[in-house]
Write a protein that binds this DNA or RNA. Sequence first.
DNA 1: CTCTGTAGCTTAACGGCGTTAAGTGAACGC
DNA 2: GCGTTCACTTAACGCCGTTAAGCTACAGAG
Lengths: 212, 212
Amino acid sequence: MGSSERRERERLKVRGKILDAARKLFIQQGYDAVTMRKIAKRIEYSPTAIYVHFKDKETLLRELCAEDFQMLATAFQQVAMIEDPVERLRQTGRAYVDFAVRYPNHYRLMFMTPRPPDFQEDESGKGDVQRDAYAFVVAVVKDAMAKGAFLNEWKDPDLLAQVLWAGVHGVVTLHLVLAKDKWLDWRPLDATAQGMLDALYRGVLRQEQPNG
Amino acid sequence: MGSSERRERERLKVRGKILDAARKLFIQQGYDAVTMRKIAKRIEYSPTAIYVHFKDKETLLRELCAEDFQMLATAFQQVAMIEDPVERLRQTGRAYVDFAVRYPNHYRLMFMTPRPPDFQEDESGKGDVQRDAYAFVVAVVKDAMAKGAFLNEWKDPDLLAQVLWAGVHGVVTLHLVLAKDKWLDWRPLDATAQGMLDALYRGVLRQEQPNG
DNA sequence: CTCTGTAGCTTAACGGCGTTAAGTGAACGC
DNA sequence: GCGTTCACTTAACGCCGTTAAGCTACAGAG
């Protein structure tokens, strides 16, 4: 009978509750505040109930993380319609920084927390521009490359994508980690991000009008 | 009598032992493996003995960290003798990446771990080029700037220093955190670092020979 | 020389953590 | 009706950082 389907539905409902509670804790208070016991309290189950639905805490958090990667890919989709690949690339950089600023805790988990050694990725969607943010960037780079936008020495789309990514990632992470450090006289994130993108694009693009 | 000095000496000796044990654990096994109990076991004291010498674990680790910053500043001093400020800047970038590769755990603590909100920096040595790695970079940038090495829009040495720093920092951290991730087709760290430095320098330096 | 205070250490404990073992009770297929 | 399975509970283990309380050796005061 349909009872097994009902059971499955109920199972997914509880699973969803766990994810929701974990997400709330995570957004509000960051990684360390997400404890199995706190999640359990929020959903009014015992801590061990979570283990019925998730292998361990890491698996749970990585599932949140996967949703965040989807969110980033979706954010990128909003600049996908821009026709000029160079401008699309620029806007992708901006969108990336915006994402990091808007969701710092997500960003920390996605890009600043090492995967455990045994971690097995869900590889469905890899390379799919709509679900894989990295693939999106590489695609834009390839597009611009095909139009001869870059200097001759840039032939490897992955390398260039990784350099551009590292640039914005560096700006973002320095601010996320060290912004409150008084040792350094920080320039605003906007200015650093803009400066990074300006410098990198000028450094890799063929100059249309050499009026530097 | 000299007995109080002897007591002070003994105090410092134990303090040093604690730091040494913590450092060893830290280098070998990373941040999370440094526990008060493990440190204590190594030096054959009880865990609480550590609290006689350090307020808490954070303070202890930050003291290690301070030594590491000194180490980085010293590494920079080895390129300080290069006369051409542009070349000096290039080599500083390389030295930075080398440092991160050689001491990944130190790097993590120095630049990838947020300071706690109440953390009070030791500000002696701030601005001292021989002890403050950031000040060193800014000084090199200023030097090059004075020689008119940069494009006109780069007038703020701090901003430029932070952009350059963010560039190499981004390359390094992506690799430290995500290198083993199979989702991405990683280019070698050397290549990405070199690409980053090439792109950035081309993006900010006035071109000597415009043969791009 | 005795007394007092304190520095440096100990043991015991608190409250937290992730996770596992064992048990319970209800719903299921047969 | 009966045994099984599934979702869950309680209890516990072994970690963690940190605090409280006490002990001992010794410096300095009287």
